[in-house]
Amino acid sequence: MYGILLAGAMAFMLLDAVRILPSEPSGLTGVVDSQMANSGVEHPVTAVLLNFRGYDTWLELGVLLLAVMGVLLFQPGTDLARVQPLARSDAVLRLATSLLLPLAVLVAGYLLWIGKYAAGGAFQAGVVLGAALILLWLSGNATLVILPPHGFRLILVLGFCAFMAVAVGLLIAGQGWLELPPSQAGSLILFIEACATLSIAWTMAALIIGLQPPVSGKQEGGP
């Protein structure tokens, strides 16, 4: 009972705090707009995400990596180096997968590319590609398995490492930490985003696959 009272009091205070926010904020729109010419992209959200606040995005990829590592630690039987496809799959799911998969890859590529000009980018593209991977795995398709043994892990760390490689490379070239030079910013952002897309897609898939109980072992030995 006192929980509802506490939550109600919290809600009241928060609502009041939101109510007295100034209606005309200073915001950072002006600062971002004035620096857009140096960002290498044309969409302000992408510019903030990959250039002005690249540190956030880089460490966010690190958070994703940590989450995958944590999930895999809980399931000692799951080895991403040897992903087991699900055995059962019906014809409808297989047909739907074969129709949707090329489309999903196309959409992911489009979202990655359009991030320069409009809403889109690595995270959106990665999630679409990740959904395609999960569909592929659910349909019992063995394609995921033909990846080289450590390919899965390599792709998981690719985004984080590519971002770090760019940062260190720029540091060696005499730039500041994560300070993209305006002339090459566009291509560097596209490179980082392409690597991050793959990593995010495989991370999303690994979070699902890693949460499944091990396919072989005690599961089948049970009564």
């Binding site: 959200v45 995005t57 994703l64 949460l211």
Partner: peptide
């Protein structure tokens, strides 16, 4: 045009929320 900085923070937040949820489900 909305302020892009909160939007970028939001994108970050969504991804962190997803991965934290997955980690918590594992736990």
């Amino acid at each position: 045009n909305p302020d892009p900085v909160p939007h970028a923070m939001l994108l970050t937040g969504i991804v962190v929320a997803i991965s934290a949820t997955a980690f918590a489900v594992g736990l």
